[in-house]
Structures are given as structure tokens and as C-alpha cells.
Design a protein around this nucleic acid. Structure first.
Length: 477
RNA sequence: GCCUCAGUAGCUCAGUUGGUUAGAGCGGCGGACUGUUAAUCCGUAGGUCAAAGGUUCGAGCCCUUUCUGAGGCGCCA
């Protein structure tokens, strides 16, 4: 059996003078004497002092960048200034040597793009190991938040038979021969012969099914992979991403917004409390990157300060109509700084959202009550006949992080809207029945998991906060 | 999908109005080094200048097409 101590635990309560055994990957090997080890348990490294006389030439030669080693030795106070404690090695095991003439990574700053192409090794870097520890922390906090508040985790299907969800282009799922699929007499593809006997796709949202759960269990949430076949080439879109979708019965848009704000703040706060070391490291990394940037391109606040600010301040809340008014009265608009026109009924463009968040309110903003024609069929119609009870939560840097709404629980209104928007009622009979039989006011939202991880870690590209990104023309690993 | 910029050594990049044999730092390899902190010092190897085609006496540099990447926009979470 292998027995070892984890570096993170060791540094929390250093047993000075005792013998310890640590195992990990070499981050640096200096002066043929100092080995810096990290084992992934945290961002902290442990310095190992290697007396060349005690170990053979073969062992010394095998120690190198990202080699995997085990060390037994005495934990002592460090003579050097860069660390408080260190291990004086008495025994060294080389688990995996590393041929540096062939290894792609180097002990220096590497570009995010290069590391993305070497995803089999990128988690060994300090940046990515911190990112993925924080990602885990956010995922755990999601489940903890809902569990502690009486929500039930509902697993909605990944393969779906609805093509009426209207949330974007879908990936087809089929086992038919792609070259010569069976045809009907009319000449179309005969999906009756496909695995499910009908066309099926990967899910773009678990919301419609989550509503089934909410109208029985009261409060549910989904947290699973979601797929969009959009040809989106941006730093905040993925073809495969994880989405969190709470759905609650006996709730209106006010309840929905309160939940969204409280939930997001909880996730951020959880990371501040439990992953402070990783966040400090990422904060310092961003400052380093921004050193060479123009002042205007730098963040107004550091990463940790930004996170604290978001947690400590109320989100701004405005209606779509009020937001439009703010934009129309803005200096940016009057000086013609906006590329896209502003008119009631048109969706807010990224430049408008960024103005509201980064210039006007300087904090996260919730925009509610959007024009009904730019929103989905299932959103509850407001009494003004023009707007729906929808809300978007907008964040600095990443834009929309949450989209949600109160759902239309009135069957006649829902049917009328489906007809207007050309959504086929016969395919969503089960969804309509939730209104016919024992319906109630209910609401929910979708939170883009990678987007909130992106915000918390400060990573510029969403592809760098998911271990194996899927995007147009990108399905490696 | 659209717009802009980029692709030169393993990595990050320089390369002048088109002109001889393609440059640096880091990394690698060889050596020195018993308190280093991106260790340092000496030496050394390493190139289909993204690909194809074109202009020219001559192309890393100019033109065309394709591929790849980044940033922005759209779609959205």
C-alpha cells in the first residue's frame, strides 16, 4: 500500500521535525539541489532539499520539470526566504521520469492557446490546476446550495425527442446509415426505423422537463451537459457546456430574481472562503498579464476585489424599458458611440449590455420584462400585452450569465403564444397538460456553469475553464 | 456565419523600401556549481519562414486561394 501526505494538509499544520512522505510532480529543479513539488492538493508547493552526495547520479538525472517523484524526509524550517518549511530528503523514488527533449511544456509562461493544444498536460500548470480546483468548488457549491435549501437534483434527459425547445441549433442523434439512410415512400428519411423511432437530438435545455419536477417536488434543479450546434466562435460559447436550471413552484419573477442573485453570490462566496489560495494566484496572474496592457484595457479592480464587490453589493435591477431609457439618455449614445440602433422592441446588443454593467451601474445588472417578440414562447405574458416576465443577469467581462423567466401557467395564453410563434402544440402535449392539470405559478432560470467559472477565475476564454472544450472544429481529447 | 489581425527554431517573438549564408530570449543537449526562488555561468545543436500557386533577375517580405489561431460581432448560457 502506498502511504503519503498531501502537501496542502502538510502546510496547514506543518509537523516540524517529523518524517514525512510526499508524492507529486516537479515544478522546478534548481541548482542540482532544490526540487519544488506540487501534488495537486492545492496551489501550494513544497521545496525539497536534495543533498547530491546521498543520492546516485541516476536519481539526480531523472529529476526534472514535471517528472513524478516520491520523497521521504524530515520537514524543517526553511533556510531560504521563499518558503517557510522544506523537506530534507532521505529517500527519493522516481515514479515517472520526463524526457525533456521531447516534453512539450516548459517551465515558463506558456500561451493559453499552446496549452489548450496540449490539454493532456495543461492541468499540471499552476494556472490550470487552480482553475480546475475552483471549477470543482463551484460545482460542489451548486449542489450544496440547493440541497441545503430543500431542492431536489433532477436528472433530465441528454437525448431528447423535442425539437420545439427553440433554444438553438441541435446536434442530431441517429444510428441510421449516414450514406444511405432508409427512405419513406415520400422520399424523406424514415426515422421510424431509427433507434428511437423518431428524430432525436442532444438536449439544449432541461427546463421543460424540470417544470414537470417543480410541479410535483416543489423545488428542483438540473445540472448537466447541454449542447448547442451553433457556429459560435467567441470566447464565451461552447458547443458542449454545463448548465444549472433551478425550477420552482409557487414563484413569480421577483422570487426568480432573488434566487438568481442569492445563488450566484453564494457560489462566489464559497470560492472566496474555500479556494482563496487559488484565487489569489489567479489574481496575481491577471495582474502579470495586464502589466503590458494599456491602462484602459486593464480591469478596474483585481480579481479577488471584483468578487468581493459582487458579493457585497446589490445587483442593479431595471426593466428593459428603463434600460433602454438609460441608454438613450447616455453620453455614449448621444456621441454616436453605439454601432447598433436603440429602439423599443429590438434586443439589447452586447455593447449596450456592457455599457449598463461596466459604465452606468458598475455592478451586475438584472434586466427584466423584455418585449415578448424577442423571447421564448413559454415566458409569462405581462398585463401590458407587450412584455413577458423574463430576466437576464448581466455580468462584467462575460455578459449574460443567467437567463430566466416566470413560466406561462395559463393554458389559453400559452396555446395562443405557441400558435403565434409557430411552436407545434401536438409535440408538446405533455408540457401543456402541466397547465391543464394542477398547474401553478412557477419560475426558473438557466445559469451557464462555465460562464460563472470564467468570471470567478478571471479566465478570458471559456475554453480554458472546461477540461476538454467542444467548439466548432474542436473535438480533440 | 461576418469583420479585423496574425502564422518565421520546441515556446515567445524580431526580421528595414523585395537583395548574399535567417536572428534573439527562453527551453533542449553537454559541462561547471553545496542555499536556490523564472538560479547562475560556459559551450552547442536546432528552420519545408502554415500550404499551394503566381509576380520578379531575385520573395520570409508583394498578389491569389486554402488551412490554422486570436480578438470583435451575431446566436446564447
Amino acid at each position: 500500500m502506498i502511504v503519503r501526505q498531501e502537501i496542502r494538509a502538510l502546510l496547514e499544520q506543518p509537523p516540524i521535525g517529523e518524517e514525512v512522505t510526499v508524492m507529486g510532480w516537479v515544478r522546478a529543479w534548481r541548482g542540482n539541489r532544490f526540487m519544488v513539488l506540487n501534488d495537486g492538493s492545492g496551489p501550494e508547493t513544497l521545496q525539497v532539499v536534495v543533498d547530491g552526495d546521498r543520492f546516485g547520479e541516476e536519481t539526480l538525472r531523472a529529476i526534472g520539470f514535471h517528472a513524478c517523484v516520491g520523497v521521504t524526509g524530515t520537514l524543517t524550517e526553511s533556510q531560504g526566504s521563499g518558503q517557510s518549511v522544506e523537506v530534507i530528503a532521505t529517500d527519493i523514488t522516481i515514479f515517472g521520469g520526463n524526457d525533456l527533449s521531447k516534453y512539450p511544456l516548459q517551465p515558463k509562461k506558456q500561451s493559453m492557446e499552446f496549452l489548450r493544444e496540449n490539454a493532456q498536460f495543461r492541468m499540471r500548470t499552476s494556472t490550470f490546476s487552480s482553475v480546475f480546483r475552483v471549477r470543482h468548488g463551484v460545482a460542489y457549491a451548486v449542489n450544496k446550495y440547493f440541497h441545503d435549501r430543500g431542492y431536489y437534483y433532477l436528472h433530465t434527459p441528454i437525448i431528447t425527442g423535442n425539437d420545439a425547445e427553440g433554444a438553438g441549433e441541435m446536434f442530431r442523434v441517429s444510428v441510421l446509415d449516414p450514406v444511405n439512410p432508409p427512405k419513406t415512400e415520400a422520399g424523406t428519411i424514415d426515422y421510424d426505423q431509427d433507434f428511437f423511432g423518431k428524430p432525436t437530438n442532444l438536449t439544449v435545455s432541461g427546463q421543460l422537463q424540470a417544470e414537470i419536477g417543480a410541479l410535483a417536488l416543489g423545488k428542483v434543479y438540473t445540472f448537466g451537459p447541454t449542447f448547442r450546434a451553433e457556429n459560435s466562435n467567441t470566447s464565451r460559447h461552447l458547443a458542449e457546456f454545463w448548465m444549472i436550471e433551478p425550477e420552482i413552484a409557487f414563484a413569480d419573477l421577483e422570487n426568480d430574481m432573488d434566487l438568481a442573485e442569492d445563488f450566484v453570490k453564494y457560489l462566489i462566496n464559497y470560492c472566496l472562503e474555500n479556494y482563496g489560495g487559488d484565487l489569489e494566484f489567479l489574481d496575481a496572474r491577471i495582474r502579470e498579464v495586464e502589466k503590458n496592457m494599456k491602462a484602459a484595457d486593464r480591469r478596474p479592480m483585481g480579481l479577488v476585489d471584483t468578487l468581493k464587490f459582487v458579493v457585497e453589493n446589490d445587483f442593479a435591477r431595471v426593466t428593459y424599458t428603463e434600460a433602454l431609457d438609460i441608454l438613450l439618455r447616455s453620453k455614449a449614445y448621444k456621441k454616436g458611440k453605439f454601432e447598433f440602433p436603440l429602439s423599443w422592441g429590438a434586443d439589447l446588443q452586447a455593447e449596450h449590455e456592457r455599457y449598463l454593467v461596466e459604465k452606468h451601474f458598475e455592478r451586475p445588472v438584472i434586466v427584466r420584462d423584455y418585449p415578448k417578440d424577442i423571447k421564448a414562447f413559454y415566458m409569462r405574458q405581462n398585463d401590458d400585452g407587450k412584455t413577458v416576465a423574463a430576466m437576464d443577469v448581466l455580468f462584467p467581462y462575460i455578459g449574460e450569465v443567467i437567463g430566466g423567466s416566470q413560466r406561462e401557467e395559463r393554458e389559453d395564453k400559452l396555446r395562443q403564444r405557441m400558435q403565434e410563434m409557430n411552436v407545434h402544440a401536438d409535440e408538446l402535449d405533455w408540457y401543456l397538460q402541466l397547465r391543464t392539470f394542477g398547474g401553478c405559478p412557477h419560475a426558473g432560470f438557466g445559469l451557464g456553469f462555465e460562464r460563472i467559472v470564467q468570471f470567478i477565475t478571471g479566465m478570458g476564454n471559456i475554453r480554458d475553464v472546461i477540461p476538454f472544450p467542444r467548439a466548432p472544429r474542436l473535438a480533440q481529447f
